[in-house]
């Protein structure tokens, strides 16, 4: 088989064409929102939320209601319980996220276990783009368009709110509203990505291309575009590799996305450092040396997701 055939032959059938569109849609939506999850240090929350969403999806499946609504409901429920534990019970934030996320995950596993189809848990956890329906693909494409459009309009506001939330509030930016919208969108992307890459792999596509893009490009505004390109590349390449090597598709996509971080780390443009007190002349040349500040939660989550 020649290279062109290796690339195109798999997509001769309808289910593979749907899988391709589905993978591209999630490959765009997840990194586009992931850039903001990484920048706002919400990676651990998103990771735990992706586990908690399993409970909502399982409950929705058992009671025959919309999986998307069930998943988003569980994500929001988790965020509310975490906020309650942090604000009222003064539990440290990471502890609250860990406890609530794992608790809901356990409930979700029990719920999926009650389903009649024994393969359901595997599908929900790891996804399978080869089985997505046309309706599911349509929803994924719609979500990708919504995420990109919202990102275009709200990107500058998110940047302001991320850089300096106190100042942002004084110029009328509704920081709390933006954060709530961000968390809802993250939950929505995890839920609609469930059928393609599964709840556990969705977090990898949200995090890894965003981290790789942050290492490669020097501007937040460009990071979104590069992250989406990396997400689409990982999605398509993962689909092809899994097809030709008979590997599970979701994990193949995830491993490639994590591989992008490894390559970016080798080619990296160092993460910016915080300003320190330094003598500055009025004309002030920019110091050329760069630091190694890393978002540890993003790195840990990426490594963890990739190991699954």
């Amino acid at each position: 088989m020649n290279v062109l055939g290796w690339l195109t032959d798999p997509f001769a059938s309808g289910f593979m064409q749907r899988a391709l569109i589905s993978a591209i849609a999630i490959g765009i939506a997840a990194p586009a929102i992931g850039v903001w999850a990484v920048s706002r240090r919400l990676v651990y929350l998103t990771d735990a939320m992706s586990h908690a969403i399993l409970a909502g999806v399982a409950g929705a499946a058992l009671f025959g209601v919309s999986l998307v609504l069930g998943g988003i409901g569980a994500g929001l429920f988790m965020a509310l319980v975490v906020a309650w534990l942090v604000i009222r019970a003064r539990v440290p934030e990471d502890s609250a996220i860990g406890v609530v996320g794992q608790g809901l995950f356990a409930i979700g596993v029990i719920g999926v276990g009650l389903m009649s189809d024994p393969r359901a848990l595997s599908h929900v956890l790891f996804g399978n783009p080869l089985t997505v329906t046309s309706a599911e693909v349509a929803v994924q494409v719609a979500v990708a368009i919504v995420v990109l459009t919202a990102g275009w309009f709200l990107g500058p506001l998110l940047a302001i709110a991320t850089f300096d939330p106190l100042h942002a509030r004084t110029v009328g930016v509704r920081v709390g509203l933006l954060d709530t919208g961000l968390i809802i969108t993250l939950a929505m992307v995890v839920v609609v990505g469930l059928t393609s890459v599964g709840v556990l792999m969705a977090i990898t596509l949200i995090t890894a291309p965003a981290v790789a893009a942050r290492l490669l490009v020097p501007r937040l505004s460009h990071t979104v575009l590069v992250a989406c390109a990396l997400g689409v590349f990982a999605a398509i390449a993962g689909l092809l590799v899994s097809y030709h090597l008979s590997l599970p598709t979701g994990p193949s996509i995830a491993v490639l996305a994590v591989g992008e971080v490894a390559v970016a780390a080798v080619l990296r443009r160092p993460w910016s450092r915080s300003p320190k007190s330094a003598t500055d002349d009025w004309k002030g040349s920019v110091t050329g040396d760069a630091g190694d500040r890393r978002d540890e939660t993003a790195a840990i989550s990426t490594a963890g997701g990739g190991s699954l």
Partner: peptide, 11 residues
């Protein structure tokens, strides 16, 4: 310039 590369006074 990228803000992370500024000195304290420049920032």
């Amino acid at each position: 310039s990228t803000i992370g590369n500024l000195s304290g006074g420049q920032a």
